[in-house]
Design a protein around this nucleic acid. Structure first.
Lengths: 218, 218, 218, 218
DNA sequence: AATGAATGAGGTTTCATTCAT
DNA sequence: TATGAATGAAACCTCATTCAT
């Protein structure tokens, strides 16, 4: 180890910077809310100075938009792919889809985005409308098809599918919001894995077809 | 009824001012978030000028605290009273309690407070901790007792009651958040009444004891 | 003089403030140019703090626009009134008009505005076009009518009146620009009164009809 | 045409860079003013990147100084040479000198420099003082000698020569300023050639000796 | 009590300058 | 040499808070 490398004050990382900035922005925006988030904090977490943010994004709002517009749709496409490729019971597909959502979103930092949009919908209605249509309603539509097929098949009981979908996912979404709000304050933070297991169990029970002879009697 | 109630020519508003200010603050804070809310907007909605706010509250943050600390606890006490006075099945009590919460909170402007706290927990951890303990966990504890009693009695199936409670209420809470975020953007906004009916139905089914001989045969 | 009046930290002067701010802005903008002018300097000269500027003008650019749009046109109207009310030789009228311009603009702080527009035309083409049409060309048109009448009458020699007007006023305009640029640096600053006298003399000689035997002899 | 002139494959630009940068800087500074001019724009127009500017000049202000200090003095020396070499009437010399100024400065990009200095005198008093003394006053002194000689000879009428010189050149200077401010906004831009012809005519008439029998009568 | 003009701290944004590549 | 990514000082602007009226 010869006496070289005076540890340069900064490095050029043009390729990685945008994603690093987005990651940092997501964390700060989710923690503080868009208005209370300071861009300098975002920069610091990304390991750059304030001005550098502006080399990659035109401003604070652009950061928010890039965040929302790019992040979740791919996850959604994963879930849609599951549906296309599935063969088997509707119940199994439903479980697969919810599981994918849980692992792909709820357990990842992406979970911050729904929380962020929930908080900021009032200030950014355009962006919120995009999120509503491109993510939420698209997700619901997919789930709804599956649920209605399950009803047709008699796997699930007859329920208004538009509402049933929202209600079915509600416990998972609540966990997402919880994670980014009160969970850090809990004495013993919520055990996400157990929560998911129980929530899935209860949600499935909630839509299960009435037990007309479970394992049939004859 | 003789000359009681003088009906004064000019009404002393001073006594009502604090509540009017709190109402206005709640509306603005929920819509925009605490940081993005402008105090002048709060004042305008309360029909007073900016300076007047400071005659009743020591500042913006004081408004937030007063809001959170005063508003929901009374509703909670109502619900607790229901439990104390109830005689009948656990299921009936559960329904009563959820119904009270729905009408007392979800359908009222108070519904904004949970949304607000969810958004601001990161910026006001003290306040959030208060809300967590004095409202959320207190509510859960109550529900939990009821649910466990129901399990004892065989009305509900055996589930980890701490989680079951959160999950049971999740659909109602989601409606609360929805109302203050995406609902104003929906083409045809969610029908809250239908939603509640279906959600309650599904949630109850989710915890119902297995139909081992409904109307039992022996 | 009893021991009252603790000299308040500031005073309410809502009515006077806009004009005071415009005066201060004119001075600073002319001295430094729009871009280099700091709003805090403008505020300080007007005797207020930074924020106060924004109570009366929506921003730096609005200050510039208000300045340009409001200030000179009235002076121009004065000059136009002179023309309407005049009876006598064209030469006399021309002198009156130039004299009015000299006293009303060149010798007043308004003289800063042409200098400012000259400097900023490249950055504010819209505003510059307004100034060109509403002030400069309007002034020229007026002067031109007088000059053409003088030519008709034989008071002035035949010249392309559009150019003659520009050239006739040029020495006065140069003094205006000089005043706000190099004059403060001159060892012995230009004597404006003498300058005007000589300039007017030369300019009039420049357009005077050739002395072909005034009251011609033959 | 044999193999003369190797026409190198790659051209060493380094030698021409400084002048290219100065040309670009002049254009941008004149258009936007020094403060509003972005160095990146200068670099772009010179066909290099931002950093390269610093290889040739120590900074933005150095560009400005180099611009002003180097550009016009040579033109002035040309004009001084005319005076030295002239033999003939003062009027002829005056015309020669003004014509040289018109062609060498007014019609060239160098015309931007006076406009620039006029705008920036308030921000760069040192530089402005240099320009005042090394260019403006030097030019005036030269013109003044010629004009006074003409007065001695009876070619021009008696006028305070210090002022007469400023006034005599004013129309030409105005054209210079006009060119870089409002001319680009005119519907039909000023015809510089006609302007000069008329301006010279009027200016000469303005100083001409009284027509004591022009082409004498009697 | 009430107003709203005035303040000034604090955030976003720009851009001259530096420096790793 | 040349580049352009990165920096950080400095300016604009907002708005919670104060205070003259």
């Amino acid at each position: 180890m010869t006496e070289t490398e005076p540890t340069p004050r900064w490095q050029r990382r043009a390729d990685e910077r945008p994603q690093e900035l987005l990651d940092a922005a997501l964390a700060v925006f989710v923690e503080r809310g868009f208005a209370a988030a300071r861009l300098e904090e975002v920069a610091k977490r990304a390991g750059v100075s304030k001005g550098t943010v502006y080399l990659y994004f035109s401003g604070k709002e652009a950061l928010l938009k890039a965040l929302v517009e790019s992040a979740i749709v791919p996850q959604l496409e994963n879930i849609e792919a599951l549906a296309r490729e599935h063969s088997g019971s509707s119940r199994e597909l439903l479980v697969k889809m919810v599981d994918a959502m849980w692992r792909g979103i709820a357990l990842s930092p992406l979970s911050g985005i729904p929380k962020l949009m929930l908080s900021e919908a009032g200030n950014f209605p355009e962006l919120a409308r995009f999120f509503l249509e491109a993510v939420i309603q698209r997700h619901w539509a997919l789930m709804r098809r599956v649920m209605e097929e399950g009803m047709e098949r008699g796997e699930f009981r007859r329920l208004p599918s538009d509402l049933a979908v929202r209600i079915f996912i509600a416990p998972m979404m609540m966990a997402v919001f919880w994670k980014h709000s009160f969970m850090p304050l809990e004495e013993t933070p919520l055990d996400m894995a157990r929560y998911f297991a129980v929530a899935l169990d209860m949600a499935l029970a909630g839509i299960a077809a009435p037990a007309t002879n479970p394992k049939g009697i004859s």
